[in-house]
Simulated scan of single mutants.
Amino acid sequence: MNEGFDPEEIEALKAECQEEGQNYVLVEDEDGMGDSGEFAHFQFVGMHEGKEVIYDAVMGTLRLNHSSLVFEEAETRMKKSYPNYIEFDRRKPNQKVDEDMELILEEIIEELEEEEVIQVKEFVEIENDFEYGIGLDISLNVEEITHEVITKFIEEFNAGTLKLDPTLYSFRSEEE
C-alpha cells in the first residue's frame, strides 16, 4: 500500500504545512544537496484523479540539471577513451585520484559547454509508480530554489496553470 494516498498521512502533512505556515514541508536529505540553494526536496498535498494525494518532489535549477548532464556525458567520453577511468560514483572512499585524468575530464567538460552540446529546458516528470505518494522531478530556470519559487510552483501545479519554458538553454561553469 502506498501511504502517500492514505487519508491519515495526507491530513498529517496538511497539519504540518499549516503549522509551518506554508503549502509544503521540506524533506531533509542525507546528502546535504539542499544546502546549495540549487536543489530542494519537499512534499505537498495535491489532487490526482479527483483524490487528494501527497506529492514527493525534488526540484532543481536548470543550471544544476545541465551541469549533471554535462558531467555524465564527459564521464561517458572519458570511459570510451580511457577504459581504466573510474567514474566518480564508483570510486571508493579515499581512493587515489589520477590528476591527469581529472584534467582531461575538466577539458572535456569545458569543450561540451563551449560547444553547447547539452541543452536543457524546464520540465516536470511525474512518477505515478512511486514508493510514497506521487513523485515529481522538477527542473526550473531560476537562479535559486527559494521558498517563493516552491510556493509559486505548488500553487500553479495544483491550479493546473503551470507553464514551463520550452526554450533550450546551455550553461557554462563558473570559473573557480
Score class of each variant (00 low, 15 high):
residue 3 E to Q: 12
residue 4 G to Y: 01
residue 9 E to K: 09
residue 12 A to W: 00
residue 15 A to R: 13
residue 15 A to W: 03
residue 17 C to Q: 14
residue 18 Q to R: 12
residue 20 E to N: 15
residue 22 Q to V: 11
residue 24 Y to F: 15
residue 30 E to L: 06
residue 30 E to C: 05
residue 30 E to H: 11
residue 31 D to I: 03
residue 36 S to L: 02
residue 36 S to M: 03
residue 40 A to P: 00
residue 44 F to L: 05
residue 44 F to Q: 08
residue 46 G to C: 04
residue 48 H to T: 05
residue 51 K to M: 12
residue 53 V to M: 06
residue 53 V to N: 05
residue 54 I to W: 10
residue 57 A to N: 02
residue 61 T to K: 01
residue 63 R to W: 07
residue 72 E to M: 04
residue 72 E to H: 04
residue 72 E to P: 01
residue 73 E to H: 12
residue 73 E to W: 05
residue 74 A to D: 00
residue 76 T to P: 01
residue 79 K to G: 07
residue 79 K to S: 14
residue 81 S to F: 08
residue 83 P to Q: 01
residue 83 P to N: 10
residue 85 Y to R: 06
residue 87 E to T: 06
residue 93 P to F: 04
residue 97 V to I: 15
residue 106 E to A: 15
residue 106 E to Y: 04
residue 107 E to M: 12
residue 109 I to T: 13
residue 109 I to S: 04
residue 110 E to G: 15
residue 110 E to T: 14
residue 114 E to K: 13
residue 119 Q to H: 00
residue 120 V to D: 08
residue 123 F to K: 06
residue 124 V to T: 05
residue 125 E to A: 15
residue 127 E to R: 14
residue 128 N to M: 04
residue 129 D to Y: 05
residue 131 E to P: 14
residue 133 G to D: 10
residue 136 L to S: 07
residue 138 I to Q: 11
residue 140 L to A: 03
residue 143 E to W: 05
residue 145 I to G: 12
residue 146 T to A: 04
residue 146 T to D: 10
residue 147 H to M: 11
residue 148 E to F: 03
residue 152 K to G: 12
residue 157 F to K: 04
residue 162 L to Y: 08
residue 162 L to G: 10
residue 163 K to G: 01
residue 163 K to W: 00
residue 165 D to R: 03
residue 167 T to D: 02
residue 171 F to D: 05
residue 173 S to Q: 13
residue 174 E to I: 12
